[in-house]
Simulated assay, not measured.
Amino acid sequence: MTTTPLGIAMIGHAFMGAAHSQAWRVAPRFFDLPVHPVMSVLAGRDADRTRAAAERLGWADSTTDWKSVLDRDDVHVVDICTPGDTHAEIAVAALEAGKHVLCEKPMANSVDEAVAMAEAASRAAERGVRAMVGFSYRRVPALGLARDLVAQGRLGRIHHVRAQYLQDWIVDPAAPLSWRLDKDKAGSGALGDIGAHIVDATQFILGDTISEVMGTLVTFVPERPLATSHSGLSGTASDETGPVTVDDAALFLARFGSGALGSFEATRFANGRKNALRIEVNGSAGSLAFDFEDMNVLEFFDGTEDPAVSGFRRILVTEPQHPYVGAWWPAGHGLGYEHAFTHQAVDLVRAIAEGTDPTPTFADGLQVQRVLAAVEGSASSGTWQQV
């Protein structure tokens, strides 16, 4: 392992900040990297909380001024883990300062913001500065295997895609009004928060993009108690209430460029479902199915086999030849949620060292943002919308 340092500044230290910190700590200890990530500085709004988070998560320094990290010589990468309303400002400023950028999804709160970010990334790339969107589920080994099977033609011509992202963390109407339920900060609700993941994941698996959508958005609980403190995804509620300005659930149909049909559902009201990201793909020669709540397994049906003995095959995706798995444990020893973030960090570090664009690019993030906007437009107009 090289000792050449690659200084990281992370902005934001809540749920995603903890996941990204784990990734930066672990990546150089399990993967042979061309440069060595160094956790240089953590930026947050409150000095005491940011300092405490830096000590807990392993950052060498902390600051309440995110702009100050752009002037530091020991910072080469800016990792953005803040609410969506700040992504564009931070990302554009970092790229213009010559810093590589990793930005959490969804990339922005609007298409206009995403366009500005993609344009800034394109200009920066001419100077060797790289940018990547944090769609971490691409780095789940089972989904990497799914993409490989599709790319190899094992499913034949793709006919159908079904994708769901089901959670239940706000099914209780007394759950407090967190920033994720505020359109000004989050951009959208279930659609952007979790729906963006299944849009990107299905496009990644198919190597194809969504061209047209027809959708609807619903808010089941329009008013919630205000949060008095924040913990995890929600926080502690007060006696006062405020309006929910985002969707609680999103459903839409889609057509892909290849002609494949898709159905998508994203909800935070699926009682009993904690993090059920489910994808099924049906093709002329086979099918595959995945559920993140059993994330080390991919189900595969080979339609070319003898019908007398054919059926869905349960593949335990823990073999050394499976994507990313060879750096970890012996076969059969499963990986977890946090490993996808480590794989994300590994891919970004390698791309920076090799002078190549990491994926998903900001252009990819813009395309997802256009899909989200088209779904919102369809929900308003009641018509199919082009992406």
Rank of each mutant, 00 (worst) to 15 (best):
A27R: 02
F135N: 11
H333S: 12
L6P: 06
A151Q: 08
R138K: 07
L348E: 07
D182G: 09
A250N: 08
A308H: 05
F312E: 10
I170W: 14
T202M: 06
L33Y: 09
A373F: 00
D357G: 07
L277R: 05
R127V: 00
G272L: 09
A254N: 08
V115W: 02
M107Y: 00
L372V: 08
S258F: 07
L288S: 09
M295R: 13
S211A: 13
A18T: 13
T318C: 09
S287P: 04
A276E: 03
H343Q: 08
M10S: 13
P320I: 12
A97W: 00
H159V: 05
R138I: 03
A27L: 01
A237Y: 01
V368F: 04
F292M: 10
A116V: 02
T4G: 03
S310T: 11
V140G: 01
G336A: 14
L177W: 04
G187P: 01
E89R: 00
G272R: 07
T228Y: 02
A52S: 14
D347Q: 05
R162M: 03
Y324I: 04
D172F: 02
P320H: 12
E96P: 00
T318I: 09
A237C: 03
A270Q: 09
G382P: 03
R51T: 15
L253D: 15
V325H: 10
N296R: 03
V101F: 00
E293R: 06
D347V: 05
K185H: 11
G235Y: 05
D294V: 10
V309A: 12
I315P: 10
I90E: 00
A54M: 11
V26F: 11
R224V: 12
E126K: 13
R72D: 08
V281N: 04
L145E: 06
P243C: 09
Q369N: 02
F290R: 04
D79S: 15
H322T: 08
Q385T: 15
A94N: 02
N296T: 13
P176D: 09
A363W: 01
T219C: 15
G303T: 11
R370Q: 13
A120S: 03
N282Q: 12
P173F: 08
Y337A: 07
R127P: 01
S68L: 04
A270H: 08
V140Q: 06
V35Y: 03
H87Y: 00
Y324P: 01
W24C: 07
I315S: 09
E305A: 15
F341E: 07
F312K: 10
I8V: 14
L57H: 08
I11R: 00
R278N: 11
T245H: 04
A121S: 04
A18E: 13
S380A: 15
V371S: 03
L372M: 10
D61T: 14
N275Y: 13
V246Y: 03
P176I: 10
V133G: 02
A237V: 06
N271L: 14
D347H: 02
D239T: 14
T236S: 14
A276S: 13
